[in-house]
């Protein structure tokens, strides 16, 4: 399964970005292949509106089935994520990617 993280960097030790729609990077971990793919989302800074839906759509394109983030998506983004069949886990905003993944595996993150 592909798991998407909102991050400030591209490694296991990178910090999570607590924001969803305006996250700097989307880091996708493929559990089967045990490898990362990433998307540089920083262009979203130029968008005045609709950052959440746009980033949600990107997750759909990247094929992620799980999202691990910090504060969680807003209403519009949550709608897109739901339609895209992405399960969202929040509360990992202050962790590293590695800590967030472990917390997810240990059911320590809140599913919304």
């Amino acid at each position: 399964m592909k798991i998407a993280f909102t991050t400030n960097g591209l490694e296991w030790n990178s910090k999570m970005d607590p924001r969803f729609g305006r996250t700097e990077y989307i880091l996708v971990y493929d559990e089967e292949k045990k490898e990362f793919t990433s998307f540089d989302n920083r262009e979203i800074e130029n968008e005045a509106h609709g950052a959440g839906p746009k980033t949600s759509q990107k997750l759909f394109e990247l094929g992620a089935k799980v999202l691990i983030t910090g504060n969680g998506p807003g209403g519009n983004a949550a709608t897109v994520l739901e339609k895209a069949g992405v399960k969202t886990y929040v509360g990992a905003g202050e962790m590293t990617v590695k800590q967030a993944y472990e917390a997810y595996q240990n059911n320590q993150l809140k599913n919304i």
Partner: peptide
């Protein structure tokens, strides 16, 4: 539609189009 929307009010997910009236 989604390519032309500057506000991401129209989102395409595969064979589904979502419209966000608030945006």
């Amino acid at each position: 539609c989604q390519k032309n929307c500057n506000f991401h009010a129209v989102i395409q997910l595969g064979s589904q189009i979502l419209v966000f009236p608030e945006l």
